[in-house]
Structure formats: structure tokens, C-alpha cells
């Protein structure tokens, strides 16, 4: 068994145009920087991206928007990105906005073999249009379905060659659910450690979900809003 790849480009060798990709991260925190760069280099087009946010104009998924590689974004919040807003309002880019908890749970359900679930989020709103409504304990809930995706791009802090992963701080966010959900899960890590070095008690993502792993390089880890005391 070999899950180890050299770099991002190596790890996405078989990606095709019009793929659906889940990308971990909240804002620019915990995003798969190397894999996004690899997509830019590879010029893969017509992508559907499932990601909480769409990056900023010149970083994160914003890089893929600039090069017109994204056909559709599935996100909960897409502010702070002028290029995104321009493409959206001009009709070049499709967007599906989903409540953040529903987005997270649709990833989790996909990774847990659950085809759908009911949630109260979005009842009575545009989000409810066309969805089955069911009442539990007197309260309305919407049927939401697990996501289907071709790839999950995940960023972890530490990982081993088997694919066991640990995340750091709030960079965990959507990464663990997406890691479990991807048809093919590709992980970039800041530190690739020898098998056996990670304490089995504190593994966040067990290796079984991970198909490919590589050590990322040149992390910028850009901060959107630096706030200090």
C-alpha cells in the first residue's frame, strides 16, 4: 500500500475537467493551499467546488475564480471576494448558498454513509424551496441530502504515510468531514511524520478515509483579518 505522493500536482494526476471537489477550510484558515496551486497549474476547468467560503481575490479558491476554472460554488458565505461577486452577478458563475451547519452535516453524512437527514435550518426561507418538510415534535424540518463529490482536498497539520491525521486550532473546521466524504481523499500536511509517531488516542481522522497524502510546501497561511489587543 502506498498513499504517499510527491506533491500536489502528483496527487491530482487523474483529475478531470468538470469534477466536483470538496475543499476544507474556513475563510483562509485550514485551506489546501498546495492542492489549489496544483489545480491552477493543471488548468482543470469546469469545477464544482464545495467549500464554506470562496477565498479572497488573490488567494485560496479566489485563485481558481480568477482563472475561470470554477463553474459552480457550493458555500455558506462568499463575502470579501469582489471577483466572485462580479462573476456571480454577471451570470458566469453558478452559486448554491447553503446554511453552514447544513453544509457541514451534508459532508458528515456523506462520510458516514447516511444518504440524508432532517434539519430545522432554512425552514420558511429560499433554502427550503423544493425540499421535503417533515414535522418532528411540532417543529418543521427540511430533508437535506449527503453531498456527492469526486475528490476531497484536505489540509491537516500532521499526518503519517498511512493517512492518520491531526488538525491544529480552528484549521480543523470542515476538513475531517470532507476527509471522510471524498470518493478520493487527497491530503496535504504541514508535517509528514513516521508511522507510529502520532498518539493513537488523539488521531482526528483515521487513515482509512485517506487515499493520497503528501507534504505541502511553502505555506503562506495568509490571515484575512489580523486583530490584536
Amino acid at each position: 500500500m502506498n498513499k504517499l505522493y510527491k506533491n500536489g500536482l502528483d496527487a491530482i494526476f487523474d483529475i478531470k475537467d468538470h469534477s466536483t471537489i470538496m475543499l476544507g477550510g474556513f475563510g483562509l484558515c485550514g485551506i489546501p493551499e498546495n492542492l489549489i496551486s496544483a489545480l491552477v497549474t493543471k488548468k482543470t476547468k469546469g469545477l464544482t467546488c464545495i467549500s464554506n467560503n470562496a477565498g479572497v481575490d488573490d488567494f485560496g479558491i479566489g485563485l481558481l475564480l480568477k482563472t475561470r476554472q470554477v463553474k459552480k460554488m457550493i458555500s455558506s458565505y462568499v463575502g470579501e471576494n469582489a471577483e466572485f461577486e462580479k462573476q456571480l452577478l454577471s451570470g458566469e458563475l453558478e452559486v448554491e448558498l447553503i446554511p453552514q451547519g447544513t453544509l457541514a452535516e451534508r459532508c458528515r453524512a456523506a462520510g458516514a454513509g447516511i444518504p440524508g437527514f432532517y434539519t430545522p435550518a432554512g425552514v420558511g426561507t429560499e433554502v427550503a424551496e423544493g425540499k421535503e418538510v417533515k414535522v418532528f415534535n411540532g417543529k418543521k424540518h427540511l430533508l437535506e441530502l449527503a453531498f456527492e463529490s469526486d475528490f476531497a482536498f484536505v489540509k491537516a497539520w500532521k499526518g503519517d504515510a498511512l493517512g492518520n491525521l491531526i488538525y491544529r486550532g480552528t484549521a480543523r473546521n470542515f476538513n475531517p468531514m470532507m476527509a471522510a466524504a471524498g470518493k478520493i481523499t487527497i491530503v496535504e500536511v504541514e508535517e509528514l511524520v513516521p508511522v507510529g509517531e502520532l498518539d493513537p488516542n488523539i488521531i482526528h481522522t483515521p487513515s482509512i478515509y485517506v487515499d493520497r497524502i503528501f507534504k505541502g510546501e511553502n505555506y503562506e497561511k495568509r490571515i484575512e483579518k489580523i486583530t490584536t489587543q
Binding site: Y77, L89, P99, G101
Partner: peptide
């Protein structure tokens, strides 16, 4: 303005 609901609906 299209920014999205984030976690507000949940």
C-alpha cells in the same frame, strides 16, 4: 449583495 447566510440560518 450576495454574501450568504453563513451559520445564521442554523
Amino acid at each position: 449583495m450576495v454574501k450568504g447566510m453563513g451559520g445564521a440560518m442554523d
